[in-house]
Structures are given as structure tokens and as C-alpha cells.
Simulated assay, not measured.
Amino acid sequence: VGFLGIKSPTITPGYWNDSNRTLKSYKQGYWISGDLAYYDQENKFFHVDRAVDAIKCASGLVNTLPIEELILKNNSAVADCTIIGVPKEKGFDGLVAFIKLKAPGNIIASALITAINKQLVDNKFEPLSFLQIVSNLPVGSTGKVLKRKLREQYQDILICAEHNLEGKGLHDFAYAQQNKVPVRS
């Protein structure tokens, strides 16, 4: 897996009013898109994540797109999901999932995180540390989930010991059993 570089006569001339970012995006004549990809022996390219969305976990670099695809493929009750990394311990992040259900109220977060973590481990993926069932995900004008907003809002969800999550508007959530954070008194 590496950065996707594109060379073509139709590449963008650059970022609007940001010549510094434009200059940094070109390497050896290639436009570096910010996407992570790989190609196989048949020269087929596979997109695995945006570079800004890859998560540095204790087990190594984790790409979120394959995990999101696995969750959607193997859990018929899930309408949409997104994964972000949130600081957990010693410079590493934990995986936090935001799940939108097809029929809210049918499944609880603790049952869902247990099922999903079994699927992830069985497929040699990093397990989730936290799962939140949501009614909506923040999206931009193109309909893409704004992971940046989720990272800002939940930056302390795994390291903050004084969780008053219901007070923050979180009601149906679950920590993975091995990642529960003790509450200070």
C-alpha cells in the first residue's frame, strides 16, 4: 500500500488559492492525490483509504475502508458506518465505529460491537475499541462522511476517564470488553 500518484494531461492545475499545497502535491511529475492504494499482479488498482483516514494502531497502520466494507457486507441491519481513529494509549489510536442502523431500536450497541469484533478478528483486522449507534452521520455537500468532524467531536472518547456520555448526548454506545475505561470517582 502506498500513495496514489497520477500522471495525465487532464490533472488538476492545483488547489484554489493554495500554491504551497499544490507544490507539495506534485512528486516527480505525479499528482499525489492523498489516496492510499495498491495494485495486483494484473495491474488492477485497489483503493484502500485516504491517507488522512489511515489509523496508527499498536498493531500497525489500519486502513478504514476495508473494515467499513466488511461491516456493511456482514451485518444486514447496518445501513451505513464509518470508522475513525481516536487516541488510546502511548501514541496509538483505537478504532471507533459510528453505525447507522436500517431500523433503529432493533439492535443494541453492546451486542453489535461483540459481533463486529468477532468478524474483524476472524478476518485479521484490528478490533473496535468503541461503537456508537447514530441516527445520522455528518456529511458534506457531496454526501461523503466528514470524518474530520467526528474526530474533533470524539477526540477524547477512549482516553477520558470521566465519561458522562449520556450527558454528551450519547445513549446507545459500547466499549469493547478489553478496552473499558474505569470511571474515576
Rank of each mutant, 00 (worst) to 15 (best):
V1Q: 08
G5L: 07
I6D: 10
T10M: 08
T10H: 09
P13E: 07
P13R: 02
G14E: 01
R21D: 11
S25C: 03
Q28F: 08
Y30H: 09
G34K: 13
D35T: 04
F45A: 08
F46K: 09
F46L: 06
D49T: 06
A51L: 12
I55D: 02
C57V: 06
V62P: 00
N63C: 14
I67S: 04
L72T: 03
N74S: 14
N75W: 06
A77K: 10
V78N: 06
T82A: 12
I83R: 00
E89H: 13
K90V: 06
D93Y: 01
G94I: 02
L95G: 02
K102Q: 14
K102T: 11
A103P: 02
A103C: 10
N106Q: 14
A109W: 06
S110F: 09
A111K: 11
I113Y: 07
N117P: 07
N117M: 11
K118V: 13
N123P: 01
K124F: 08
P127M: 09
V134K: 05
V134R: 05
P138R: 05
S141I: 11
T142H: 07
R148Q: 12
R151L: 11
R151K: 15
Q153A: 15
Y154G: 03
I157V: 15
L158H: 00
C160L: 05
A161V: 10
E166P: 07
H171N: 08
Q177T: 12
Q178I: 11
N179M: 05
R184P: 04
R184T: 13
S185F: 04
